[in-house]
Design a protein around this nucleic acid. Structure first.
Lengths: 226, 226
DNA sequence: TCACTTCATGACTACTCGGTCACTTTTGCT
DNA sequence: AGCAAAAGTGACCGAGTAGTCATGAAGTGA
């Protein structure tokens, strides 16, 4: 008779295995960030994780690429988690829509700032796969995007139903919101990298959040006052 | 005594040379689009252009990478040209600001649709270089971005001075406009690639132009009518 | 302690391709 | 036609590295 595994109480063996896996991912993240995915070598990842190269293949049979996608999983999971906990239907119904959005953006930008390395790895490689010709990879990104959009849509719809957002297509608005988060944070990375000449970008998470919220809610046009 | 060359009247030699160069770039564009930059081989580019591989090096001493950047030059030059001819200070002063912006966006999206291959090559590779560790390449993209922003700023400032745009930082607005053009067209490519389930994106150049203009000018918030 | 399973290892293989250069062909000039 | 310069060529080379696998170490249970 065995101890009930699977469902809970991972054995020491399993915990250690998981810890090793995490160490490998951490090493890989560092090497990808430093050299870029294409120039990263499995030898260096293995060395940095203090394992033999062959061992990597025991944990990630798919090699370099599987390691990359395991890292991307972490990024997407983190974003989904933020949406679930800060952009719920309940929050939208209780609080002012604008402050809910600002709070959500705030957490998201803070998370991205924390996961800077991962975010950069993702945006450097994503387009190559999305517009590349391996349908499995294209599908991966489509799935991740849909997960996020599907999590954003219900609260947006609730806000529209409550009459606090223009009654547009909730899906379109979700895509736009996602696109602007991505675009804005990419722009922040760009400014960090280029060294922007003064006031072209907000930098802190909450400044970014305010900036996008203002843009999205208010627009650029001068309004007739009255 | 020589015929006055350099300034004008390119000789037949020169014209032929230029034509061969263009043929090489065309072949390279096709191969990059088909295989992706990383998987494209000089052998295939040379074969498709009907030249020997060595000949490519007579025209592009920098090899594969120089060819890529020569292609990118074409894309950026095209965009600058559109700005110069459709988003001038004169236009902003004469016409309604919103219709000038719509017209400009319209032309831009039409151009990108025409240059689809090139645009995709650019977005697949740009981030890798921008956030990569070759400062010369980072600088290239910074320069191209600045060219575009610098072309956008004067008309935007003119519109602000005329009181038809909120008096924000013109540079920030230019960056945002550029970011949204990029983001919007990327999203269109994404939908084409993924096959979007219904109404998530506008597709034609003018629909895209209207969409962005509406977003930028009006915002999402429901306004108190009165 | 022994037999057996699981896991770790890194030298090795196989392969790809960017770039070179010695040689050939073409061109332009007299 | 003859010659020299320019242009074209593609077989070859070497660097780089993803992935394999034969070997051995460590862990496990009796």
């Amino acid at each position: 008779m065995q101890i009930a595994e699977e469902t809970k109480a991972p054995s020491r063996r399993e915990r250690e295995k998981e810890a090793r896996r995490r160490a490998m991912l951490e090493a890989a993240q560092a090497v990808f960030a430093e050299r870029g995915y294409a120039n990263a070598t499995l030898d260096e990842i293995a060395a940095r994780a203090e394992f033999g190269k062959g061992t990597l293949y025991n944990y990630f049979a798919g090699g370099k690429e599987e390691i990359l996608f395991a890292l991307l999983d972490q990024l997407y999971d983190g974003i989904i988690e933020i949406i679930d906990s800060h952009f719920s239907i309940a929050a939208v119904k209780t609080d002012d829509i604008r402050s809910v959005v600002v709070r959500f953006l705030d957490h998201t930008f803070a998370f991205l700032a924390e996961q800077d390395d991962l975010f950069l790895i993702a945006i450097k490689e994503a387009h190559r796969y999305i517009f590349g010709d391996d349908p499995e990879k294209t599908e991966y990104f489509r799935r991740q995007r849909d997960r996020i959009v599907d999590a954003l849509v219900p609260p947006i719809e609730a806000a529209m139903d409550a009459g606090v957002l223009k009654p547009l297509s909730a899906t379109a608005v979700a895509h736009m919101l996602l696109g602007n988060i991505n675009g804005c944070y990419t722009h922040v990375c760009l400014c960090n990298r280029f060294g922007s000449p003064e006031e072209t970008a907000p930098y802190s998470a909450s400044e970014n959040a305010e900036f996008i919220a203002t843009m999205l809610f208010d627009g650029l046009a001068v309004r007739d006052k009255n």
